[in-house]
Write a protein that binds this DNA or RNA. Structure first.
Lengths: 227, 227
DNA sequence: GAGACGTTACTACACTGTCAGTAAGTAAGA
DNA sequence: TCTTACTTACTGACAGTGTAGTAACGTCTC
């Protein structure tokens, strides 16, 4: 809860040390989660004591927030022209990211663990992930709108669901992949799913499973146990 | 590590108390995760001390395993004839589950948190989730094979990816829903995504994004930072 | 010599698991 | 049916560990 907004009188080596800490923290939080990821382990990796870490970041909570922001920053750096592609290219970019992620096991694990952990009570990363998903969904909605405009079709009502689903399938596959890397093809499956979901929006087909309404009604009436 | 395989000389009230503990543990692990879910909080809910819980389950690790097994047991009870439907009905059943889940916030949260937490080092739930996903993927593969046989088409190579993707999208949507219940329609989005993915397997269409190969090659060459 | 950087030493606490002991139940034999 | 022997279901106290944060102190660098 210590809200010391750190505005360090940036010396160059200090900046380097701080990013070194951020990378170490990513590794530890990825391996053990936030709760079981002790500051001492992070400190060891950068040749410091845990009190040194606290000097830089004020609190462990704050460190987590900085770790998450840091990843976003480096992600954008990877882009040539510093901005996201639009239209269908946005989805192609997602597929590329999925391929790239196969060699970024540490970060993938950190994100998978932290995003799910963030739904627990009073988690310091909660606001971050809420905002992140909100932004990403909005992003994809716009990509869909662009793609629709290009093809001269009206924007279907399914874009909201599709946007959420695309992010969901990428996240979900990461968890399965982390648990069984030999059985799950992270990138290929992501590509397949994104393709399928984009296709379902831009070129919808009649339902194979029956209208949502009927299945829904069916579902509502059955299984009325509450846990 | 205390491997006291508990085979309790089942007294009826004892059994009841034990399931009471399992339900309380589900609530606590759901709210705080396994690591931050203390035994004392579980004990309080059932009017006991934490030592009492340990008497019944031997260790906290073992308790978690029992919690997970317990949920599986109750899930199967919900089914009328005790066995999973096959073919396309299997997917309809998934959609029904998604609808039912909207009123089972507690269990959904427990599963979302625990499954992601399980990818961390030495997590006691790891083996459980590995097995669970393996089984579920196999399940869905078979459902696809049935559906293909029914329609007289050969089984496409995409079934593996689709099976993993369907589970993934359901899990991923749950996380987003838990973080923003007003913005994400868990059930409707799940239905949409499952429909899209099943459709993409049974009735494939030409790619909108370009062949996987090209995008893959593109991806491999770019973004070669490792985290 | 002022402030940033970092250490050592310490406090405070949360949590799991152990242990000894108690109360209540259960089974068996006379 | 009373007694004895044993088991189950706990409690309360405590040990041990891991961990976040604080405070006081150096030390290097502008």
């Amino acid at each position: 809860m210590s809200s010391t907004r750190r505005a360090p009188r940036a010396r160059p080596e200090t900046l380097a040390k701080r990013t070194e800490i951020l990378r170490a923290a990513t590794a530890t939080f990825g391996a053990k989660g936030y709760n079981r990821g002790p500051l001492t382990e992070i400190a060891d990796q950068v040749g410091m004591t845990h009190a040194g870490i606290l000097h830089h970041f004020g609190s462990k909570d704050q460190l987590l927030v900085e770790v998450l922001k840091y990843r976003d920053r480096t992600d954008v750096e990877g882009l040539q022209d510093q901005r996201m592609p639009d239209g269908l290219d946005r989805f192609r970019h997602l597929v590329r990211t999925a391929f790239a992620n196969e060699s970024r096991h540490g970060i993938v694990q950190a994100y998978a663990v932290l995003s799910a952990e963030s739904v627990t009570d009073d988690h310091p990363g909660r606001a971050y992930f809420q905002e992140r998903y909100r932004t990403l969904r909005q992003d994809l909605r716009e990509a869909f709108e662009d793609a629709c405009a290009e093809r001269g079709i009206t924007v279907p009502a399914t874009v909201d669901r599709a946007a959420a689903s695309i992010l969901a399938v990428m996240d979900g596959l990461q968890v399965q992949w982390l648990l069984a890397r030999d059985d799950v093809e992270l990138a290929e499956a992501s590509a397949f799913a994104i393709e399928a979901l984009v296709g379902a929006v831009l070129d919808p087909r009649p339902s194979l499973l029956g209208e949502a309404g009927s299945v829904a009604a069916d579902a509502r009436s059955a299984t009325d146990r509450d846990a």
